[in-house]
Design a protein around this nucleic acid. Structure first.
Lengths: 336, 336
DNA sequence: GTGAAAGCGCTAACAA
DNA sequence: TTGTTAGCGCTTTCAC
């Protein structure tokens, strides 16, 4: 690696001047500046970020902790964050928590040593605790919230999205609408569940506990839960299902297939979060679409703003709206 | 941030001893070691990675450049790399090149300043050139190769995979087998194309240029190419299609649907790379499966090995095998 | 087995 | 406008 010293020597200036010429050109005479720039180019100089960050007591990194890079929703969040960060020459440290608070803690811990300027985290059930490791780090909670007071967050309108989905089913005439809900220690699941209940209530349909089953957000959980709901006796089985996340929706569809229930004739399904899979499966799925990329992008921009301002202002809490996309997986129930 | 100095003070030793106690415990008396460990724990000490890396002239990072985090294949590669790296407490810097050599160059450039110990890259068409920026960095080329001599690489057996796919189609009785091939400046595409030709030749089927169309690896490219091939007059239209990557396979299926061709009755399809989509679409797709996670994991392990050994040994070139998974998208052609 | 001292490459305060 | 100097936090000689 070429050091600044070498550049300085070649440009016949001191290291300090070379540093200024590259980082704060306005402080240096034009010709000196150009001599340094030339020398740097000729030598292929690349600043040593480590030394710079050490000296400045702060880097140009931000940390990003998502729960699962293999989930397209989270991958899209990550892409949004990265694009926003690289637009201002920040580098993103990406970690997966795999929904395990222990991995999350390790991620935060190792992040600490890199002196990041900020953190974006998709919280798990114990993020609240883990974030105590970095009390003064500007932090944005993304997609979910950890329940910390004063937390900054960027999320979608889960309540409204769920309400729209279930209202749509009710409007089609469904009365037995089941839900596969997520883990209730995750705020998105709670909010979507709440939206489900509100929509039922608005439609004058009594809430029935036995039509709701939880799952741990993975495909297999969705399959198992949906299978159980759909195996109920014909007159008690839900004619429509609202599923709380993308992965579980896949499972629910597979369960319906396994039980030879035709969608949407025997069963209407609405999923939360769009995906290519939802678009191209047959019949194409009606879903609540989330602006995943924008969510990530905005989280990063919010964080950058926060880092600029310092911690004086109150919490920023952003909600992006969702959109119900009607496709072919919902229809009126068969007459009985 | 708590510094080592503070830990040392609390443990009543010098900073040097504290450093040794934590990093090379065997050099320090047992009781001292424990005193330091205790102090570190009590203070919540976390080493400043920047200072350490600066001093040691080398970090515990490796760089990873993939082309597209939104492609599940690449996301899976990344996960494999990360898991292998974190097992030995290395941190992965993840960049997306988006298949643009310019972004790749910028990624490599900014990586340089972090003094990474190694690099894993999924090459684009000009990686050869870009890698000159980091001449002495241990580097593994993943999934594809840049064409550099002596490059270390971890790839799959594209040739064999393609051959198996096309031989399968030939064995079913297909004679007009089309291919949607990738960009021929990408080695995976070249190798899969070669496998296609070899299999045709082995089956005694003449190669016909007009049955092959290239695409730029995205869904839309696959759709357009497949649409063109399938729009040929009935007696010249391929009865089977081999598609060179996962995304384009989606497009090919959509094209078949748009043309009202039933799979596998009117058209057999084999894709390269398995995916949930391929598994759950109807009919489920016959595909050449690639061990994506293992590929990433192995690339990282190979890199770590390389970093240990130094550059003395010759190039490591690994090929993992692929597997043809027979599902429901292939059948014998209709009699004519 | 431990401590003192030097230095990784950079930038910021101070001086000229 | 530029140079000198010090120091970020750590590890590693080199003494003892």
């Amino acid at each position: 690696m070429i050091s600044l010293e070498e550049v300085a020597k070649r440009a016949q200036v001191s290291a300090a001047t070379a540093s200024r010429a590259l980082s704060r050109p306005e402080m240096v005479a034009v010709q000196t500046r150009e001599r340094v720039a030339l020398a740097a180019r000729e030598l292929g100089y690349q600043p040593n970020v480590l030394a710079r960050s050490l000296r400045q007591q702060g880097s140009r990194f931000i940390g990003l902790i998502i729960t699962d890079i293999l989930n397209p929703f989270h991958a899209t969040l990550a892409k949004g964050v990265q694009d926003a960060a690289s637009a201002v020459e920040y580098t993103v440290f990406l970690f997966n928590s795999d929904e395990e608070h222990d991995k999350e803690r390790r991620a935060i811990d190792s992040l600490r040593g890199h002196l990041p300027r900020g953190l974006i985290v998709v919280p798990t059930s114990r993020t609240r605790e883990n974030l105590k490791l970095v009390p003064n780090l500007p932090t944005i909670e993304l997609d979910r919230t950890s329940g910390r007071e004063d937390a900054h967050s960027v999320m979608v309108d889960n309540l409204g999205g769920a309400r729209a989905a279930v209202s749509h089913l009710a409007a089609l005439g469904h009365r037995r609408i089941g839900m596969v809900v997520g883990r209730l220690d995750i705020t998105t699941a709670v909010e979507r569940f709440e939206g489900y209940r509100e929509a039922l209530s608005a439609a004058g349909i009594p809430f029935r506990d036995e039509l709701v089953l939880p799952g741990n957000h993975r495909e297999e959980d969705g399959r198992v839960a949906a299978h159980a709901l759909l195996s109920r006796p014909p007159l008690e089985r839900p004619t429509a299902l609202f599923v709380g996340n993308n992965e579980m929706t896949v499972g629910a569809v597979l369960a319906a297939r396994a039980l030879n229930l035709s969608i949407p004739r025997d069963l209407s399904i609405v999923g939360f979060d769009d995906s290519r899979w939802a678009q191209t499966m047959q019949p194409a799925l009606t879903v609540v679409e989330q602006p995943a990329y924008n969510l990530g992008h905005l989280a990063c921009e919010t964080l950058l703003g926060l880092m600029g301002r310092g911690p004086v202002t109150g919490p920023t809490q952003v909600r992006l709206s969702t959109r119900l996309i009607l496709r072919d997986s919902t229809a009126s129930p068969l007459e009985r």
